[in-house]
Design a binder for these strands. Structure first.
Lengths: 242, 242
DNA sequence: CTCGAACGAGAGCACTGCTCTCTCTCGCGC
DNA sequence: GCGCGAGAGAGAGCAGTGCTCTCGTTCGAG
């Protein structure tokens, strides 16, 4: 139903897309702080006021870019996951995590937009939620699959966390052992801590050889949510007991 | 030598401090994006150009605030550590981590300034390094102490990470087992991942009861660097085998 | 005591987001 | 087939920004 529409509506969506494209280009080049509506309009050969027919404010444009960025990252994670669909859970977990890192390194300013400091007044609107959830859903899917194979061994939780963990699991990952929700959310936040620290320069002069460092950290995160290698594959590589 | 100085120099440092104070006030109220040199000057009863006698640019002012924020956070961590100086390493570890979280929740915009997206062109100047290192040094100290007590059990590393881990340990925490450096850096990044996610709203509608969640996650981080409870103190609270 | 350095004021430049008004044109409903 | 209104773009303008430059004044080190 959205394919057939008047020429006017078609032009509108086309121009909207062109504006977002140019904005994304500026975002990638200079960062969110220097994204200027006037510059976008200038580049598109229109006057700045005309742009307000498409986006009611600069923040609104940024919000659109945020949603797109979440989707782009989510898609990267999902396709990385599909590329190793047959492998054991631990391998898929690291593949997805490395896809997240790779996307972040390739799109630093977009990553900063979604996982850095919140730009506008506060907290992005509800529309971004589904896009933002995609990476998390992939990780949950991996853990669920491991659970169904009977390979999941989630570490125990202290008693004061059991209630909250059960609630989180019921809401995010129903069917999994009740400790899994809390473990997953923690791993999720820690994953982005690792990526963010590398991207924002906190690893400068600290971590040099980042690829193996990240890879190992991510395996440890997997252990934290209960994923274990089905059988050791490398001599010692994935066999730490913790 | 810095105590006795001319009235002019005294006035200069006083005014510099007043500018930073007012800037910090605006930063806390509106965030870094809306920090305006003109508004600071206005509030101080001076004209904007006069402010350039003290800070050559807005970015320079922000850099000063960044250093101060690192110092403030570092001091919070250090004094939290001193407050539990006698306790066993695991307790001290969680105390410091919780101090970091508390500071972040109390100073969200300053936290965003130092651990959110880098604001200016890129990567803060060298002057911020010592201030930025303070939290890390406290954590390293705790681990070192555990090591000297013979209570440290750092999990093994995959072979391809041994070289880099040794280098990191030698540079950051000489004397510790060579795996410790990598484990510490990973825990450090993950700690700030947890704090940042909570602060930037990624836990909204996901984690409700955040205090015990954070506490447990931080205990897990401690396990990751090799800290174990000397003897179980609560019934099961800190006794997960990981 | 003097002269230069430090200081503050003010005007001004180029830029920003955003609003308002004006005109024109396109295409939908009749 | 046509008229008219909604949608689109242009332009001027407002309030604000960072930053520069010039110009008196004033303070204090030599």
């Amino acid at each position: 139903m959205s394919t057939v529409k008047g020429a006017r509506a078609r032009a509108r969506t086309e121009i909207t897309a062109a504006i977002k494209d140019e904005a994304r280009r500026q975002l990638a080049k200079e960062g969110a702080a220097k994204l200027s509506l006037r510059a976008v309009a200038r580049e598109l050969g229109m006057v700045s006021s005309a742009l307000y027919r498409y986006f009611p404010s600069r923040d609104e444009l940024l919000t659109a870019l945020i949603t797109d960025a979440y989707d782009s990252l989510g898609e990267a994670a999902e396709s990385a996951h599909e590329a190793v669909a047959g492998a054991e859970p631990l391998v898929r977990w690291t593949a997805v995590c490395e896809a997240v890192r790779a996307w972040a390194l390739a799109h630093p300013h977009e990553y900063a937009l979604i996982y850095g400091s919140p730009v506008p007044g506060y907290s992005a609107p509800r529309t971004t939620v589904p896009a933002a959830a995609r990476v998390g859903l992939v990780l949950i899917g991996i853990v669920r699959d491991a659970h169904e194979r009977g390979e999941l061994a989630v570490p125990p939780l202290p008693p004061e966390l059991l209630g909250e963990a059960g609630r989180m699991t019921a809401e995010l990952a129903p069917g999994l052992p009740s400790e899994a929700g809390a473990a997953l959310v923690a791993a999720w936040a820690q994953l982005f801590g690792l990526v963010g620290f590398e991207l924002f320069g906190h690893f400068n002069r600290v971590v040099e050889d980042r690829e193996p460092f990240f890879r190992h950290a991510v395996v440890r995160l997997a252990h934290g949510v209960g994923l274990r290698p089905a059988r050791p594959e490398g001599p010692g590589a994935l066999t730490e007991r913790t």
